[in-house]
Design a protein around this nucleic acid. Structure first.
Length: 627
DNA sequence: ATAGGGTTAG
């Protein structure tokens, strides 16, 4: 994109004298408006008072129209164009309006206009235009604006500096970001967190840590920035280590740190640690706002404790919409479709209006439980009862629902007829259904599409290769593998973690690095013998022929999940529940084996996979083999 | 009137 700013006129001193008004009643009224029609009534009164060209009065009108949710930016512009001498505040407000609508060109154009008309930008102007440059990576404009910041004398304005750091991180210009940061005499929390989390988002964890560590007066906010940097990069053990260091330095836990740590526990499936954080929240006087409550519900659900999630949810004095949604999502993951529908009804009886996400989660609950008729019903119901138009996510759930049930043609028809074109998520749902129902023809078409839409997603290649393998099309299998190689896409290695007494152990398929590897493998062999006599037959889902016939051991035997279960059986007393978390989906063979293990060893095994939960008990799984 | 950190599906 060509730079928009051509002119940098020399600024002149501000011209228009300030009108002084005592705040009259209609002006006061403006402050309490909530709709455009209300606003227009007050505006009419103001105009009658002869204030139609008054910057102070019209500035308030413009502020409402340009920046409030119920406003109207075009109307703000009409008012603006009637003003003979709009002031800096008014220009800033219009720029803010464009910024909120993510309109880069328009915001910068207005900034240009203000310079051309010699209206002097102030300390509020630059943070806005700097942010505007982030919208479409307007690098050239961003550099120019940086020049203006200095030229107009705001080089040491903290708000401008912090926003410049943000902008350069956004451009991936790490050196420039560091330079602005280093030039600051007094860095505040925002400076530290912007740089640390900015580096972390780009994957530069070591740099982020160096910045963090160089802060001699770390606030809670700064600690959280680094902890959440680790969490976002899946470095959970690092997050825990840093958290412990923080505790040892007597830093007080706040909402954000609690939320970040809960998120780490959730992602790891570390229930014990998660519960400990919840205890800390209860003990300290951290305000349990609805966001934190949602995080806690999510932790319990995703660590496999649906009952504790429900208990916590029910005990909440005030339930925000996100808490209801999260609870419905939790029920969905555990395959409790009917209970999810009940919760929706309870919500309605308590006059809490469900929203867009409520129905995403509800439809997902129907899909996971095979509630086909109910799912279709609620898909229409949300629009009829609440006027919620189905969005991409709802279509994704509907396609998932139909596809899982084997109604592939119906799912395909939905995709054809939906008002927007299906995104990779929706197509991915159909592709997943092709895998379940082994529909090679459709799977090949859709699989190729999703691979091209997301060429870096390794799972899609693997799925298509498996589909080919199932059909015995080995040449196509090889081609897919080659394509992956050529594009440098790496298979995500599968791993499983099991939490025992608060210690989380991680296993990868066939891995032997665990200090007790020998015992674990012996235990797996013992388990296999036991379940074989109970009827276990290795099930590679038709994929086995691809493996070298000479290979002595079946790699299926040492999938990470089986290793984790073996370790769990070794380390726990009879009867204890095993909780396992996987990064990928459970394979058919491990699913079958887990069912038998739960029976033969009389253990409840709760496995969380990428998508959902499996509760194995007495030789059965809660998913009823529908996953 | 300005900025940074947390949650909700597959």
């Amino acid at each position: 994109m060509a730079p928009i700013l051509h002119v940098i006129p020399t600024p002149q001193s501000p011209a228009s004298p300030k009108t002084t008004n005592t705040l009259s009643t209609p002006l006061r009224g403006l402050e309490s408006c909530s709709t455009m029609s209300e606003l227009k009534q007050f505006q009419a009164q103001i105009i009658k008072l002869g204030l139609s060209c008054d910057n102070d009065a019209m500035g308030r009108v413009i502020k409402f129209c340009a920046t409030f949710e119920s406003g109207d930016l075009n109307y703000a512009l009409q008012v603006f164009h009637k003003l003979p001498n709009p002031d800096t505040f008014i220009y800033n407000t219009i720029i803010r309006g464009y910024l909120q609508s993510q309109l880069l060109k328009e915001s910068l154009l207005f900034y240009s206009h203000m310079l051309e008309r010699s209206v002097r930008p102030n300390n509020f102007t630059f943070p806005l235009v700097i942010r505007a440059c982030c919208i479409d990576n307007a690098v050239e404009e961003g550099k120019q604006i940086h020049g203006h910041v200095i030229k107009f004398g705001f080089g040491f304005d903290k708000f401008s500096q912090n926003n410049l750091i943000h902008m350069y991180v956004n451009f991936h210009f790490l050196e420039e970001a560091m330079m602005v940061f280093d030039s600051m005499y007094e860095k505040d929390d925002v400076s530290w967190t912007t740089l640390i989390s900015g580096f972390a988002q780009l994957g530069y964890l070591a740099e982020a840590f160096r910045v963090f560590d160089s802060n001699s007066e770390k606030s809670s906010v700064c600690w959280n920035a680094m902890i959440s940097a680790y969490v976002h990069n899946n470095q959970f053990h690092q997050a825990f280590a840093l958290f412990e260091r923080m505790m040892s330095e007597d830093v007080v836990i706040d909402n954000f740190i609690a939320a970040s740590m809960l998120s780490a526990c959730t992602r790891l499936g570390a229930l014990k640690q998660g519960e400990w954080i919840v205890e800390q929240v209860k003990k300290s006087r951290i305000d349990l706002d609805s966001k934190l409550a949602t995080t806690i519900i999510d932790m319990y659900s995703k660590c496999g404790c649906l009952d504790k999630a429900l208990q916590f949810f029910k005990g909440l004095p005030r339930k925000g919409i996100s808490s209801w949604n999260c609870m419905i999502g939790g029920l969905a993951m555990h395959g409790k479709g009917e209970a999810a529908i009940e919760l929706l009804k309870e919500m309605e009886s308590k006059k809490v209006a469900p929203d867009y996400i409520t129905f995403v989660n509800l439809l997902s609950a129907c899909a996971h439980s095979g509630l086909i008729e109910e799912g279709k019903y609620y898909f229409h119901y949300m629009k009829e009862a609440y006027g919620i138009e189905p969005g991409m996510e709802h279509y994704g759930c509907l396609v998932d629902l139909l596809g899982r049930a084997g109604l592939l043609e119906e799912a395909r028809k939905i995709i054809k007829e939906m008002p927007m074109s299906a995104d990779v998520g929706v197509l991915g749902a159909l592709f997943g259904a092709c895998r379940i129902h082994k529909n090679i023809e459709l799977g090949e078409i859709i699989g190729k599409q999703v691979i091209e839409l997301e060429p870096q997603n390794s799972g899609r290649y693997v799925l298509l290769a498996n589909l080919y393998a199932y059909a015995g099309r080995w040449e196509d299998v090889a081609n897919i593998r080659k394509l992956m190689n050529d594009r440098g896409v790496k298979k995500v290695p599968g791993f499983s973690v099991v939490e025992l007494e608060g210690v989380v152990s991680e296993f990868i398929a066939g891995g032997r690095t665990h200090p007790q590897a020998k015992e674990i493998y012996a235990k797996v062999n013992e388990i296999l013998d036991c379940i074989k006599s109970a009827g276990y037959v290795p099930d590679s889902d038709g994929l086995q022929q691809d493996i070298d016939e000479e290979e002595r051991e079946n790699p299926l035997y040492y999938h990470s999940e089986k290793l984790a279960i073996a370790f769990g059986l070794l380390k726990t007393k009879p009867g204890a529940v095993l909780r396992i978390t996987k990064n990928l989906r459970v394979c058919k063979d491990c699913h079958q084996a887990s069912k038998l293990i739960s029976k033969v060893y009389d253990r409840e095994i709760i496995v969380r996979d990428r998508n959902r939960f499996h509760h194995f008990k007495d030789g059965e799984c809660s998913c009823k083999d529908y996953w």
